[in-house]
Design a protein around this nucleic acid. Structure first.
Length: 416
DNA sequence: CCTCCACCGGAACGTGAGGAGT
DNA sequence: ACTCCTCACGTTCCGGTGGAGG
């Protein structure tokens, strides 16, 4: 008689576990070698090199789509730089790493920099999350930097999101940082900006651009062959020998990721999920079937996650589009969407927002990829946005249905 | 060719939460 | 208790506009 977990645990006992070290597939993992990025590493290395002699390096802008290795290369080179400095007994440069998508405001960026280099308030306490005038935190940072002569290398990951969120504020932050050099006595800051958006430059203030963009490094997408090479390298680290069924598995992962504009992060994610899928099922090998399945799982999970974390108002708007769509029409226009939204909001006893605001929410949903919108003109009958669900009705329905309040409304609307 | 609809989307401003210092 | 910050979320106001129908 075989009981449920017998087989699964047996696999572990027999040492047939699939993974050796699954962390090697995580986005934050920095491997010992970065294949196909030698050129970029050398560029950045030679720009940062002067820091070892105490000379301030030029600022750098790195461009490239997601998953082209920008972040990992920057990390790698900086780590090497610091290691080399320690080894050779020269003044070790300070480094800081800021993800601007998460740390998105002037104040928070400065605070994060203070944290990373251990700058403290005059009384020795840590810089608070909020409350201080921004100027004050600036001067705390400056004082700390100037206390000993240093080169301070700041990596601003995803800088484009700073400027996208608010063009003026974003420019202010960058301008403030680049200008700080002129205000420092002993130390120098050099900035490595990392951008996913190739058009990012156009949004920058010319003053900022001229100092931030002294050097530019481009990260082209990986092609299928390169992706395969990267996967090969990580497979050996992450999986036990023989855990991958055949060549075809790697090829498939590479091909699928190449379709996603050569996103290596996506490829590694896919491989890891496929591995976990196989593991969970008690299979001894990862097959192409697992990869295909993993692809679906990832897609479904990201959609579910984004919908679930939506603010209630946005959910109501999305729900309005969903309700109109499931009553038979493919395209929804802003006006109808707004009217339906009003009903829904009322039924949920939410505040009803203005059309202007709802229009912004619609744009946000568009950017999240949950809906597609295009501005069209209906001639005599005005100009409007044509809205269409970007994911399957069934899936949206299932997720929204989990929200008890919404599912009740759904039934009410349905029964009318 | 012109008009005029039904919105788009920029700009400025208001409110209130969250926090610090005095 | 009061002043001074930042910041998310909304509102009000308004100039701008592609193209169907006259």
């Amino acid at each position: 008689m075989e009981r449920p977990l017998d087989k699964l645990f047996d696999k572990f006992l027999q040492g047939q576990a699939i993974f050796r070290d699954r962390d090697a597939l995580r986005p934050t993992y920095v491997p010992d070698e970065l294949p196909f990025r030698e050129e970029q590493m050398n560029r950045i290395g030679s720009i940062l090199g002067p820091a070892l002699r105490g000379a301030p390096p030029s600022n750098i802008l790195c461009y490239g789509k997601t998953g082209t290795g920008k972040t990992v290369v920057a990390r790698y080179v900086l780590d090497m730089l610091v290691a080399k400095a320690k080894q050779s007994n020269v003044k070790v440069p300070l480094k800081a790493f800021v993800n601007c998508r998460i740390v998105g405001t002037n104040y928070r960026v400065l605070r994060q920099l203070c944290e990373e280099i251990g700058a403290r308030m005059p009384d020795g306490s840590r810089v608070p999350f909020t409350g201080l005038p921004t100027d004050e935190i600036r001067s705390i940072l400056k004082k700390k930097l100037d206390s000993t002569p240093t080169i301070f290398v700041v990596v601003l990951d995803e800088v484009d999101s700073l400027v996208k969120r608010d063009v003026n504020q974003g420019n202010d932050i960058l301008y403030g940082l680049t200008r700080m050099n002129g205000e420092l006595e002993n130390s120098r800051i050099s900035i490595i900006g990392i951008s996913n958006d190739l058009k990012f430059k156009e949004m920058l203030d010319p003053r900022v651009l001229s100092s931030l963009g002294e050097e530019e490094v481009i990260f082209p997408p990986y092609n299928a062959v390169e992706l395969r090479g990267i996967l090969q390298q990580r497979v050996e680290l992450a999986f036990n020998p023989g855990a991958i069924a055949d060549e075809g598995v790697i090829n498939l992962v590479g091909a699928l990721a190449a379709q996603e504009h050569g996103d290596a992060r996506r490829a590694l994610d896919l491989l890891r999920t496929a591995g976990e899928l196989a593991e969970r099922r008690g299979d001894t090998q990862v097959t192409q079937e697992h990869v295909r399945e993993a692809q679906k799982v990832i897609e479904r999970d990201t959609i579910t996650e984004t919908v679930k974390t939506l603010p209630m108002q946005s959910k109501a708007v999305l729900f309005a589009v969903y309700a109109l769509t499931s009553s038979g029409k493919r395209d929804v226009f802003t006006g109808e969407c707004y009217n339906t939204y009003l009903e829904i909001a009322k039924a949920l006893s939410l505040d009803t927002l203005t059309q202007r605001r709802v229009s912004d929410l619609i744009s946000e949903l568009d950017m999240l990829g949950l809906i597609n919108t295009t501005v069209i003109s209906k001639g005599r009958y005005g100009r409007t946005k044509k809205i269409r669900l970007a994911v399957s009705k069934r899936q949206i329905g299932a997720i929204l249905d989990e929200d008890i309040r919404l599912s009740r409304i759904a039934r009410e609307l349905g029964s009318q």
